[in-house]
Lab assay of single mutants.
Amino acid sequence: QIFVKTLTGKTITLEVEPSDTIENVKAKIQDKEGIPPDQQRLIFAGKQLEDGRTLSDYNIQKESTLHLVL
């Protein structure tokens, strides 16, 4: 699982696999929060994550925290 922290300070927990794409993660966030993926920007280690890449591409491991910017 990974954590996604929103600007409001809320933390969302997501069940993911390293092979999941960023697009996939955004879809999971939409399921939980109702935020359309095209409004979501995910930041990890100061980098904006691209939809077509996977979590493992960015070396995002379990218990990692991503930041969600709208």
Rank of each mutant, 00 (worst) to 15 (best):
60 I>T: 02
50 E>I: 08
43 I>Q: 07
55 L>V: 07
5 K>R: 12
2 I>V: 07
16 V>K: 01
22 I>H: 01
59 N>R: 07
30 Q>L: 10
3 F>P: 01
36 P>C: 09
13 T>G: 05
55 L>W: 03
6 T>A: 05
56 S>Q: 13
42 L>C: 01
63 E>L: 11
67 H>D: 11
27 A>I: 14
52 G>L: 08
12 I>V: 06
56 S>P: 03
63 E>N: 14
68 L>D: 00
55 L>I: 08
50 E>D: 09
26 K>Y: 04
30 Q>E: 10
26 K>R: 05
62 K>F: 12
67 H>Y: 11
15 E>V: 14
2 I>F: 04
63 E>G: 15
25 V>Q: 00
50 E>K: 07
12 I>L: 11
20 D>M: 13
35 I>E: 02
24 N>R: 13
60 I>R: 00
70 L>V: 15
16 V>L: 07
51 D>V: 05
58 Y>R: 01
47 K>Y: 09
36 P>S: 08
68 L>V: 05
11 T>W: 07
62 K>I: 09
58 Y>A: 03
38 D>C: 15
28 K>V: 04
21 T>W: 05
16 V>Y: 15
28 K>G: 03
38 D>M: 09
14 L>E: 00
28 K>S: 04
33 E>D: 05
23 E>S: 15
39 Q>V: 12
41 R>E: 13
70 L>T: 10
41 R>N: 15
57 D>S: 12
39 Q>P: 02
66 L>H: 02
42 L>I: 07
44 F>E: 02
52 G>T: 09
36 P>W: 06
30 Q>F: 15
43 I>T: 10
67 H>E: 13
51 D>W: 03
33 E>M: 13
51 D>T: 06
58 Y>L: 06
48 Q>I: 14
27 A>V: 11
10 K>C: 13
31 D>K: 13
29 I>W: 00
55 L>R: 00
32 K>N: 05
52 G>N: 12
29 I>K: 00
36 P>T: 06
28 K>M: 12
51 D>C: 05
29 I>E: 00
15 E>N: 14
39 Q>W: 09
4 V>E: 00
27 A>W: 14
64 S>D: 15
1 Q>V: 13
9 G>C: 07
18 P>L: 15
33 E>P: 01
48 Q>T: 13
29 I>Y: 02
70 L>D: 09
66 L>W: 02
53 R>A: 08
23 E>M: 12
17 E>Y: 13
56 S>W: 09
58 Y>E: 03
69 V>D: 07
36 P>K: 07
63 E>C: 14
35 I>Y: 12
30 Q>I: 02
26 K>N: 01
12 I>H: 03
70 L>P: 10
7 L>K: 11
24 N>I: 15
50 E>S: 08
41 R>V: 14
40 Q>H: 04
16 V>E: 00
29 I>L: 07
53 R>H: 12
63 E>Q: 11
63 E>F: 15
62 K>A: 13
14 L>Y: 02
32 K>P: 02
50 E>M: 08
28 K>T: 03
64 S>T: 08
31 D>P: 02
32 K>F: 08
5 K>L: 14
54 T>G: 03
37 P>M: 15
65 T>K: 05
66 L>E: 01
21 T>L: 10
38 D>S: 13
33 E>F: 09
59 N>W: 04
25 V>P: 00
2 I>G: 01
